[in-house]
Nucleic acid binder design. Sequence first.
DNA 1: TTTGTGTCTCTTGATACCAC
DNA 2: GTGGTATCAAGAGACACAAA
Length: 299
Amino acid sequence: MANLYDLKKFDLNLLVIFECIYQHLSISKAAESLFITPSAVSQSLQRLRTQLNDPLFIRAGKGITPTTIAVNLHHHLDNNLNQIEKTLQLMSRTDLARKFIVYAPQLIILDPVKNLFNIFEQEPNLLIEHHDMLIAQQSAEDLLNYRKADLVITTTPSTNLSVVCQPLQSFRLIPICRRAHPRLKETVTLEQLLSESTVSYVVDDPILKSIQVDSHPYFQERKVSFRSSSVFALMNMISNSDLVGFLPDLVYEYFKDFLQLKALLTPVPSPTVTLYMIYNRTSLNNTSFAEFISRISVL
DNA sequence: TTTGTGTCTCTTGATACCAC
DNA sequence: GTGGTATCAAGAGACACAAA
């Protein structure tokens, strides 16, 4: 492994200038190709001479000739500089595989979050890593500050000036049960709803928590028989039992036929939740990310 | 984050060296 | 002497770093 401390002390640009002088065997021609003055090249050569304790080039008539040390240095540098150039070219390629870490609710199957991932899929070398935002231990701002996430989709907006926060989509939490429920028709009273056992979503999200606690007396009075941090486990339980649950209308529309679910019309007002898309303002310096965000904005 | 300071690299202009 | 090239000296601007 390279001794990075020693490399830090050495001005690697001097080697580039050296190689340019060697290729042209002329200070002025090297300066011309590097778009600097001959004096600057000469001074850089002087610094390299001091570092390596060798004149490297000796004046010969109107030009200069390399010393044996310079010939050897060129021999070793040639391949290495070519390798560095190839690495830089590789890094600048736009089709290089890129990895984006997205913290989002489990609702990634839904619009428009689903559309976001469709956009990613159009980029063949893009790797998407998804984490469940609703059970994340850190806030969106912390995830972005510590570069643990490139994009966060959450229910809590941010006013931090270092991040960009924009509304993505709103959805309603509606009561649902299985279609073959023996007691509940499409329209039910509050008393009927309270007489049924329910499922509850275990979540750390402050907005969803406040809905479960404050939005309506029903949520405090209901009898909870099954709790889970998995939206899909809740839906599966509702589909295969007489339990009732409040789930996003988007989830219901997507799974209602597959899981044989039924939406209930109740006097309980449906809480509305808004999803926000948050990302670091500086991330826009990344061309791929900026393009991705611009494409989301036109959805 | 801002500010002050030292260092580095560059340019400009002048000078030295060499071939013709 | 002239022209081409390398080098030196001084100053300007950029940058790194430490302190507030």
